[in-house]
């Protein structure tokens, strides 16, 4: 055997073992549970029962889509603005975007409760002015806000990465050829930042659509997302592992299909985007 290839394999082996134990094996277990009944006999009943949860699927996709759209609209100008600054300011802003990601996202979500609660920061302030209280917590808006807040760095970073690599003279060339600011955006910046957008959309949409914690803490128990549904069944005990696995499997397949379509739409611009 080629010595170098053997060396490479040796270096990669801890990760291969890790992925096998913690990714591949659980996936097999999940598929096994989704296709069997409580006695371990093969059945498609779990999958065909999925229709019962179409409302949760629908709401999850809707919320995740809205949250992704909002993140994109907020992050795009932010990323562009960052590339316009001098290097030291760019680094600083980059850090400001990154720092929240170093904190546990459960804690970050929890902090929103203290801001949005009926006796929270905003309502306390409003009552001082003789206004309110506003109903902020336990609303769909709060859930979407949580998603946007938690996942926006994953949108900013790939966009920033693509835009900062963009040759500035391309925008000058567009202007030179008669484009005003909007035309420059539409005909050059937007198409060339597509790989970054696709990475960003993926990295925000996927965790949003499968989240359960955000909806529980900020949405009360009123909005049952698909992640909540899975968690709910899972907590009921081993009897419900089969249905929980089936929902997970379907969700996973749906996400993979979405990713596939998205990457197709993005054309063949492999460079620039960071798909993690």
């Amino acid at each position: 055997m080629n010595k170098k290839a053997f060396g490479n394999k040796l270096v990669a082996s801890p990760y291969i073992v890790w992925s096998a134990i913690f990714i591949v094996v659980p996936l097999i277990i999940m598929v096994y549970f989704s296709l069997t009944d409580q006695n371990g006999a093969f059945t498609l009943a779990n999958i065909s029962d999925i229709g019962k949860y179409k409302k949760a699927f629908g709401i999850s996709i809707l919320y995740a889509a809205v949250a992704t759209l909002i993140t994109l609209v907020l992050a795009y100008p932010m990323a562009y603005f960052m590339t316009k600054l001098n290097i030291s300011s760019q680094r600083m802003l980059f850090m400001i975007v990154m720092i929240p990601m170093w904190m546990n996202f459960l804690i970050r979500t929890y902090s929103w409760i203290t801001i949005l609660a009926n006796t929270g920061l905003i309502n306390t302030f409003l009552s001082k002015l003789g206004l309110g209280p506003l109903r902020l917590i336990n609303t769909p808006g709060a859930v979407i806000l949580g998603m946007v807040y938690d996942f926006i760095p994953y949108m900013i970073l790939p966009l920033y990465s693509v835009m900062s690599k963009l040759d500035k003279s391309l925008l000058e060339a567009a202007e030179d050829l008669g484009s005003d600011a909007f035309t420059k955006f539409r005909r050059v910046l937007f198409p060339l930042s597509k790989p970054g957008m696709i990475s960003g959309i993926t990295m925000v949409f996927v965790p949003s659509v499968s989240t359960f914690y955000i909806s529980q803490k900020l949405g009360g128990n009123k909005t049952m997302l698909i992640g909540d549904t899975i968690e709910y069944f899972f907590n009921l005990g081993p009897t419900y592992y089969n249905i929980a696995s089936a929902i997970s499997l379907v969700l996973m397949v749906m996400i993979l299909v979405c990713l596939f379509i998205m990457n197709r739409c993005g054309g063949n611009d492999e460079d620039g985007g960071v798909l993690m």
Binding site: D167, S169, L170, E172, A173, A174, D176, L177, V188, P191, L192, D269
Partner: peptide
């Protein structure tokens, strides 16, 4: 006026 840029700046897309 139109410019021919140093590294051409052709649109890659």
């Amino acid at each position: 006026v139109n410019t021919i840029f140093q590294r051409y700046a052709l649109f890659p897309h």
